[in-house]
Amino acid sequence: MDIPETLVELVAEFEGFKAEAYQDIGGVWTCGYGTTGPDIHKGTTFTKEEALQRLSETLQSIWNQIEQKTSIALTSKQMEALSSFAYNLGTSALFKSTLWKYLEEGEIEQAAQEFPKWSHVNGKVITGLLKRRVKEQELFLS
């Protein structure tokens, strides 16, 4: 399934657009709408169009990975919430998380309670991350 445009919009809103690469709060080189990876370094630049293309491609890949890995039926809203979460933290973090464990056990409410726990960087709660996790949690439960 193609990802919903609302997912791209949600992640773009939380990530914000930066045309030039910068180091995020964790020291990771980032550009566009939160794009990271071996090809992102000091001096990397994106146009908004390039950044949206990369964002959409990455979100589609994440969506597909979640669909392939889950053993239960998920709603589109749950998929959006999980894809946003995984875009920010990585699919490895999602698939190893207690959130995923509860989800796979069909414990939707318990899974939802895990979202806000992922709002720390270097042991400190980051307000922007907490807002994102709460939005993902609400979307997941809607």
Rank of each mutant, 00 (worst) to 15 (best):
I62N: 05
F14S: 01
L141P: 00
E138M: 09
G90Q: 08
Q53S: 11
G34C: 07
T36L: 01
S56Q: 12
E109R: 14
Q110P: 00
I40E: 11
S71Q: 15
G128A: 12
T6W: 04
I62Q: 02
G32V: 08
A86S: 15
C31Q: 01
K124T: 03
G27H: 05
Y33M: 06
K96P: 00
G16Q: 11
T70V: 13
D2S: 12
K124F: 02
E9L: 10
T91S: 12
E114T: 08
E114I: 08
K18V: 03
Q23M: 04
F17G: 01
V134Y: 15
D2E: 13
A19N: 06
Q23H: 05
Q65W: 00
N122V: 01
R54A: 11
E105Y: 07
N122P: 00
R132H: 07
G16L: 10
T58V: 09
K96V: 04
G123Y: 10
L103N: 04
E5I: 13
L10I: 13
V8A: 10
G26N: 09
Q113R: 15
K124Y: 05
E138H: 08
W29Q: 04
V11L: 03
E114H: 08
S61K: 14
E67Y: 07
K96Y: 08
W100M: 07
I62C: 02
T98N: 13
D2Y: 04
E109N: 14
Q60K: 12
D24F: 01
E9Y: 01
Y102L: 07
I40V: 15
W29V: 05
L99K: 09
G106Y: 12
T44Y: 03
A86G: 03
L130Y: 13
G43Y: 06
E104K: 09
A81K: 07
A73P: 00
F85M: 11
V28N: 03
Q110S: 14
S76P: 00
S97T: 10
V125W: 06
A112T: 11
L55D: 06
A112I: 10
P4K: 11
R54N: 10
F85H: 10
K42L: 05
V134P: 00
G27F: 04
I72G: 02
D39H: 12
Y22S: 01
W100N: 04
